[in-house]
Design a protein around this nucleic acid. Structure first.
Lengths: 378, 378
DNA sequence: TTGTACGCGTTATCAG
DNA sequence: CTGATAACGCGTACAA
């Protein structure tokens, strides 16, 4: 690997000063055409390439690179988001460094450190599940930071289990990696979801792009109730995740406001589609549930898989659209987020601050859309 | 945005020389513990962060960043690959810059230029469909380059349409964005696929990681024939794409070697799942085809979608596994690539050369696996 | 319009 | 073990 030619080499070959080459490379117009031609010739001759890394250390200059921290590129939700962010940034001359935290708090911190060391111009981050907000507090003064999918909030302490007449807690249906979250009702204040809601009143630490998780879950649950569901299973990931708490809260809100007397519900946790399928398989035919709200795409896939394998189904609505949703019969109804729009909004928020805007950090909550395809019916 | 503190600031605050701070930051051991403590204190005090971009301009140093050029992050195939690459690189201290070329040759060149200007340490590239190999020739002398999914080959000229008794060409079933590729048989030499095969004999321009596209397609086609298929539809993307040519060649090879007298086939092109669904819908029930080989994941999804909508199905095998494949009945049989392994192999190839290895560029062809789930049956 | 001299934040040399 | 000094590749005052 021969070391690449520098501006100095080009200047020497073209018989001009360094500065003139610099001008040419940066597209300045006020250059003698004769010199410009000599320089251009020397550049192609030597195979010179502008060194952006070197240029970026000058004050006021930057490499035009943005960092994106998500939890898992392999999940279609995140890859769609990453694509959308990359498109918007690319159209504005920025490159994107994407890293996966895999929901690991330590790795999350490490990755952010690395990106800051790399001197990226901006950061789009999905906060980790037990967020201390330390990363945001440290990074925000240095560069534009946007939180996506979840706000930069410290995780509230786990709430105490609560029971009431209308809310019963499923015994752990299968051995799962994590105990199922306790069921709660709307009457029960001072819970994690409520803490989230309270904090949302205060100005956010950084610009934040969210979907209306609670609203979407509420609409889906209401739809299931409308079709006669009385014992709905909330099947999702750990309630340590903000989005899960929100969707859970929306679920409960629908039950509190729209459920007839005697309605009941249960909650189960599954990290993967396979775990979700196991949960549903174990419950199918027991009569303990008569409908499923799948709180993320993996849960939806698991539920459909269980239905297909067992040869029986229950009314189902999922959160997040997924490719298979239109391929099975009945089609899977979902609460769809506009992922492309979220990515674009996050990218635009970073770009706006890079362009000099300095409004106080704001939270943008994008609406979700209930797409009915038939699976909500009994 | 206050400008971040530098090593000089830290040195001043700690009352030591610049070089000592540099030593401390780079983890040198031979430092007076007292000074080291003062430096550490100053670093946390000032909030100093190592500037890797600045450090990388020294000769022999680099930012430890790799560029990845793929065609579309939104396609699960590419996002899985990107995840795998990122994992391997991340484990070795490298960051990844992922960009999508969207199969556009100009954009492809632009992106590679940009990544080279950024002085990435290595490049993992899926060559564009009409590759001139100019990018590879230019980049390969500068840094480790790996071609993935397709070799870095110039595209051969489109072959002249050929006909014979056993091969008939479907009239264009629907108005598609691109005319269907001509059908050919094994007797027909000097075709694009054959050119590909010939070039593969010669040493590749750069390290290359491929899947056994032809072998997988051949196995799938043979399986369809074994179950009685006689008029198979090859449903794929443009044959300008190397992988499509390879799969098409394998398809033809199976027909040539295993098809009984009177067997027939046809070829249709579709860029999206929707287009593929339209093609299959138009052909279903006409009797012109009695089985489908879907040459990529979008074609598979389209075929399944058509089957579901029409309420009729034909034997089907797809290329590339996809999430919905196990959720429909019958399960969709596929030729599966080990995407994770391909990504890891590509990353390891780059890392090996970065570590100093300099073997001649080699091509690694990874086996594919035929997964039978029932859809291959009549 | 072009060139000179210097600084950006870091690391390497080499003398103390 | 430490520190002054010179690069690294590039952009910008400022002078010519």
């Amino acid at each position: 690997m021969p070391k690449p030619p520098t501006m100095k080499d080009v200047a020497a070959a073209a018989g001009v000063a360094l500065k003139t080459v610099s001008r040419h490379v940066n597209g300045a117009t006020n250059i003698d055409p004769a010199l410009a031609a000599r320089i251009a010739a020397a550049i192609t001759e030597l195979g010179y390439r502008h060194n952006l890394a070197a240029a970026s250390i000058r004050p006021g200059r930057s490499a035009k690179v943005i960092g994106l921290v998500i939890s898992d590129l392999a999940n279609p939700y995140w890859s769609l988001l990453a694509r959308s962010v990359e498109r918007t940034l690319s159209a504005n001359g920025y490159l994107l460094m994407t890293v996966s935290s895999e929901e690991d708090a330590d790795r999350h911190r490490l990755l952010i450190d690395r990106l800051l060391a790399q001197r990226v111009d901006g950061l789009i981050v999905s906060p980790p599940r037990r967020d201390t907000t330390a990363w945001a507090a440290a990074a925000a003064p240095l560069l534009p930071v946007v939180a996506i999918d979840r706000p930069a909030l410290s995780a509230p302490p786990p709430p105490a289990p609560v029971q009431d007449a209308r809310a019963t807690r499923e015994d752990q249906p299968l051995s799962l990696a994590e105990p199922p979250a306790p069921s709660r009702t709307d009457d029960d204040l001072h819970t994690d979801a409520d803490v989230d809601a309270m904090r949302r009143q205060h100005p956010p630490l950084v610009d934040t792009i969210l979907a209306d998780n609670a609203g979407g879950a509420q609409a889906a649950t209401r739809e299931l109730l409308r079709h006669g569901a009385r014992r709905i299973l909330f099947l999702g990931d750990s309630l340590e995740l903000y989005t899960m708490r929100e969707r859970h809260a929306g679920f409960l809100r629908a039950l509190a406001s729209a459920a007839p007397e005697g309605a009941d519900f249960s909650v189960a946790t599954a990290h993967t589609a396979a775990e979700a399928a196991d949960v549903v398989t174990a419950l199918l035919g027991t009569g303990r549930i008569d409908a499923v709200f799948a709180a993320n795409n993996r849960a939806s896939v698991g539920a459909v898989d269980a239905f297909t394998r067992v040869g029986a189904r229950l009314p189902l609505i999922g959160f997040d659209d997924f490719e298979a949703a239109t391929l099975v019969r009945p089609g899977v109804s979902v609460v769809a987020q506009d992922v492309a729009l979220m990515g674009e909004a996050a990218a635009q928020a970073v770009l706006a601050r890079l362009a000099g805007d300095t409004p106080p950090p704001a939270t943008t909550t994008l609406p979700t859309r209930l797409i009915l395809r038939g699976s909500e019916l009994p």
